[in-house]
Design a protein around this nucleic acid. Structure first.
Length: 224
DNA sequence: AAAACAGACAACCGCAGCATT
DNA sequence: GAATGCTGCGGTTGTCTGTTT
């Protein structure tokens, strides 16, 4: 049996106090991120390492952008969701200063509702059967509900090792395969490619960890 | 003014994937 | 190759706040 990630008896739960926040900020300023399991003890916090990580990533990080989402950010979330499904971390990665939790919450509380009101099923970005939206007539090929985790974005998983083939342009296929999901219809150009340092290293070394594998360049041109 | 309700957001939980032993 | 440990992700829940009745 695996040990629990922390001693549940002696850890705090719930909202973070100002003092706890400050302790965590001070510690990470000096020692940097990483080794979350040891951070609570080292920083003098009675918190689970996971909780520290979440608090830092979603709230305390200095580069976090807070406040309401701009219209173009919302558009981008909708388009990326149509393409990637509920891959919040990937989506958030394309929105500077936004966290996956924030994007997920915004989706669930705002965008979902909005799409439903427009007569669009937020799960598959298709028009509801009972309601046909004039601009939501194209089907999305790869969305979350109908596919397994691996099937959702197969092009993100596989690397041929060839930089030229790994930089895939979806410009044409996107027009064919993905939905035009908002009104008025948008022309969406999207490119997904290995991040530049990976291209050179791809032939020699496998990826070091799952996160590096997820750090793909996704370039999107929105021609509205 | 108070209760009920809805929306927004922070935080927790369980699981999966990868690395290490 | 199996067992274990750590990290990150996505789903879900809890709580706070604002609005309506």
């Amino acid at each position: 049996m695996r040990k629990p990630c922390c001693d549940k008896e002696s850890i705090n739960k719930g909202a973070w106090s100002k003092q706890e926040d400050q302790k965590l900020i001070d510690y990470i300023r000096v020692h940097g991120e990483g080794c979350w399991r040891s951070i609570p003890k080292a920083a003098g916090l009675h918190r689970c390492g996971k909780s520290c990580r979440l608090r830092w990533l979603n709230y305390l990080r200095p580069d976090i952008k807070r406040g309401i989402f701009a219209e173009d950010e919302e558009d981008l979330i909708i388009k990326l969701h149509a393409l990637l499904g509920n891959r919040w971390s990937l989506i958030a990665g394309r929105l500077p200063g936004r966290t996956d939790n924030e994007v997920k919450n915004y989706w669930n509380s705002h965008i979902r509702r909005k799409l439903i009101k427009m007569g669009i099923d937020p799960n598959n970005h298709k028009p509801h059967q009972s309601f046909s939206h004039p601009h939501a007539s194209v089907e999305v090929a790869s969305t979350s509900e109908s596919m397994s985790k691996d099937q959702k974005v197969p092009f993100l998983k596989k690397s041929s090792g060839d930089a030229a083939t790994d930089r895939i342009s979806f410009t044409k296929s996107l027009e064919e395969e993905t939905a035009i999901i908002s009104s008025p219809p948008l022309n969406l150009d999207l490119t997904i490619a290995l991040p530049s340092p990976m291209i050179g290293a791809a032939e020699d070394k496998p990826m070091q960890n799952s996160e590096s594998a997820k750090s793909w360049d996704i370039n999107i041109d929105l021609n509205c």
